[in-house]
């Protein structure tokens, strides 16, 4: 949010309930928040960027993260804690992450997949898709809350 919008935001009323729903929808289905707000251009650009980023990441053989206790005895062990940030980034992709999780796509630790030249690129694309969707979600939320036009 730019400075002029922040100053404007301080004057507006409490966040309407609809804004939270728009934010949730924007996270769940990338681009849907802006679609609900009739911001067609932004929905196509920002939602499209997230979808493209995610599918290109998958096509390049990227890896999706989830927290596993494999080899650990407690949640507080470093080997478990270190899995949380990449998982949080991946979860940002919403339905795309959930669908992959349900279909077990991209989660396996496959040495052949890891040996691909594009494996690291793909993993980075998948992480960034989630992070970009968080930004998209916040933008949709701000627009719905009247803090941004």
């Amino acid at each position: 949010m730019v400075k002029s919008e922040r100053i404007e935001a301080q004057r507006v009323e409490p966040t309407p309930r609809g804004a939270w729903l728009i934010g949730l929808a924007a996270w769940f289905l990338p681009g849907s928040g802006h679609l609900a707000l009739h911001k067609w251009g932004r929905a196509a650009l920002m939602g499209g960027a997230v979808w493209v980023c995610f599918f290109v990441g998958l096509a390049m053989g990227g890896h999706l993260f989830y927290v596993t206790m494999e080899g650990a005895t407690s949640f507080l062990q470093w080997s478990v804690l270190i899995q949380i940030p990449p998982m949080a980034a991946n979860v940002g992709s919403g339905i795309l992450y959930i669908a992959c999780w349900l279909m077990d796509i991209g989660f396996r630790d496959d040495p052949q997949q890891a040996a691909r030249a594009t494996y690291e690129y793909g993993t980075t694309f998948l992480l960034i898709a989630g992070l970009l969707n968080y930004l998209t979600m916040l933008d949709a939320f701000d627009i719905a809350a009247g803090r941004k036009s």
Partner: peptide, 20 residues
């Protein structure tokens, strides 16, 4: 090309959420 695609996708979102 992969780097350019990555930069383009990030730039689209960054550009869309910022400025007036």
């Amino acid at each position: 090309l992969v780097m350019a695609l990555f930069a383009a996708l990030a730039a689209i979102v960054f550009g869309a959420i910022s400025k007036d």
